[in-house]
Design a protein around this nucleic acid. Structure first.
Lengths: 347, 347
DNA sequence: TAGGATATGTTAAACGTTTTCTTTGATATC
DNA sequence: GATATCAAAGAAAACGTTTAACATATCCTA
């Protein structure tokens, strides 16, 4: 592979000058520049980035750590980061922890998963990355990072617990507010909710948003219409049945899977979703477009989270400092499909 | 960040010896080794990989190019490659072309997409990768690679057209054979097929496998029961209707989407899928577990394709040469769900 | 006890860049 | 014509490794 020295020899221009041309620095006249560029093209020159990074100590590279690339939300976030990097002329390298295949649902053994993360972080530091973006939801794994190292960290999709590490999240509460509002506007009067497990911050915030919306629209809040599920489809079926039998005419489920369970119940019992009952899910997974009737839901700004995380990181690296807020919330969008058709009230 | 020199200074051992210890080479006695290792730990030493790669000219790194990371099959393949690399102590870097967001369905402009690929390849070569694995389905983009560069290429999920580039694929024909056989065994007598577009090699091979299975089981082949679709759900609906009205009692669809379309038609018309009609799809996408009744389908060995591609690459790099076959076929597996329950004949 | 082997260490030259400092030569100024 | 100014180009020292080639000490063999 051609080197800068070969260009120098062929053109008779010194190495230093060649370097200047290649880095588009000024202080070299047009003829010399052209001479060098022609030679570079002829020799099919490609800079040796390892040499460059070594010398300059920086790599213009962001590290991206995913807990598991095969989980539904990860690729889109990575894509967002990649897009931002491409645009900014930055590089990125990916480290995939492969949590899911290793541990099933989530890392059980804190020590093991921490050392896994440290391994990847070490490798990235060895490659002189300028910063690392962590994508995941097991924030306890991240905590241990802060004492670990010099580089800048940013969390995407999870909160960092450490206030010096910015995190980019989506706004559960607002999304839940809007989802519930949508049900109300579509004519829902008695509104039930199937929440996720109580220990989830997502459930907590979505529940708050839901309640706020009821309050804002003066819909009476009836605690017995809030049931707690386990994110699974089956519980959607049984809890949906329970809610409907309690008189609910609209249901907000904390994810698409549980919402699909409700759908199953309705389809099996001749209840027409979108008319007899209004239903909205959360996540905008493929299921929601594929079930019948199609499910209205909340779309997560995954790409945008990645993009924003990268932008924040690049800002920090360029010396603009940390963002004002430690947690940055991005807005979700409501995707309206058949399951919330209803009888629209004038907004 | 601590360097090898600092370790050398602190321990009084020469730089060369420190390097030997760190690289686990022999020719250094146990005491010295321990001394160095202790110092390395105390100083929190991390090798500078850029320096190492620069000096040694190799990077123990594989480049992975994806046409689009957000497309359903890519993450799983990448995961397979990553797993194989982890195991072999290799690193990987990812280059995501982002075709989908850039071009919608596929690259229209050959020139532009080619230059996109070249850009990523150049970057990887600049980082001294030992080989590049290309994941995608637009093989025409790959063709132009062979004349481009020195590094080793391997194609995953697509055929390479160039016989010096091994490609790892799954066996469409065999999978289609087995899918059809499954329909026959489940009691299907009049078997229809909804194929993909005629210009797709997938469609071609699946059609051949289908016909072979009919022949092997002495089921008469009726050309009017083979219809050509466009991969979309809607055509599944209309073509499914047509097949059923022509007397088909079992249908093999070339993908899950079209199969779901058939399902829609049946559900809308009181035809019980799995009993009145047998149905099998292809791809094992999330849809197939989520529709009702659940769809039997063909699962692609995506993880295995990635893994195999990496293994082949590592073999080549370690001097074991190219695999005997230019195209390596991995087997799909049939996933049996509700839509092919039928009345099982003795096998 | 000389003459190897063998084990352990060290010296120093690379790898391909970037970058500081210096040199060169031309032009302008007095 | 001597000197200051300035743009352009070059020389050389790094960056942190690896690795050949070499040096030394230890031990064995005859």
């Amino acid at each position: 592979m051609a080197t800068i020295r070969e260009i120098s020899e062929r053109t008779g221009v010194s190495i230093a000058t060649v370097s200047k041309v290649l880095n588009e620095k000024h202080g070299v006249n047009a003829e010399t520049r052209q001479l060098v560029m022609d030679a570079a093209r002829e020799l099919n020159y490609r800079p040796n980035l390892n040499a460059r990074y070594l010398k300059s100590g920086r790599s213009q590279t962001l590290g991206i750590i995913t807990e598991d690339l095969t989980v539904f939300n990860a690729p889109e976030i990575v894509d967002g980061i990649a897009a931002a990097c491409d645009e900014a002329g930055y590089h990125y390298i990916l480290g995939n922890l492969r949590f899911f295949k290793r541990y099933g649902n989530g890392p059980k053994d804190l020590e093991e998963s921490t050392s896994l993360v440290h391994g990847v972080v070490d490798e990235m530091l060895s490659k002189q990355v300028d910063g690392i973006i962590y994508i995941g939801c097991h924030s306890h794994v991240v905590v241990s990072l802060s004492d670990h190292a010099e580089p800048q960290f940013v969390c995407a999709y999870c909160t960092s617990l450490d206030s010096s590490i910015p995190s980019i999240l989506y706004d559960d509460q607002k999304a839940a507010f809007e989802a519930t509002e949508r049900l109300i506007r579509a004519g829902g009067r008695t509104i039930g909710m199937i929440a996720g497990p109580t220990d989830s911050s997502h459930s907590y915030n979505r529940t708050r948003g839901h309640q706020e919306a009821l309050f804002a629209h003066k819909v009476p809040y009836n605690p017995s219409l809030t049931l707690v599920g386990d994110w699974g489809r089956d519980c959607g079926y049984t809890l949906g049945e329970q809610l409907i039998k309690s008189g609910a005419t609209a249901i907000f489920a904390h994810n698409d899977l549980m919402a699909t369970g409700v759908l199953d119940y309705c389809n099996a019992n001749g209840i027409e979703v979108g008319k007899d009952i209004l239903l909205i899910g959360f996540d905008n997974r493929e299921i929601s477009t594929v079930c019948r009737p199609q499910l209205s839901t909340v779309a997560l700004p995954l790409f945008e989270i990645g993009q924003k995380a990268a932008h924040i990181m690049l800002d920090i690296l360029s010396g603009k400092g940390l963002p004002a807020e430690h947690e940055i919330m991005l807005e979700c969008s409501i995707i309206e499909r058949e399951s919330t058709l209803g009888t629209r009230r004038k907004s």
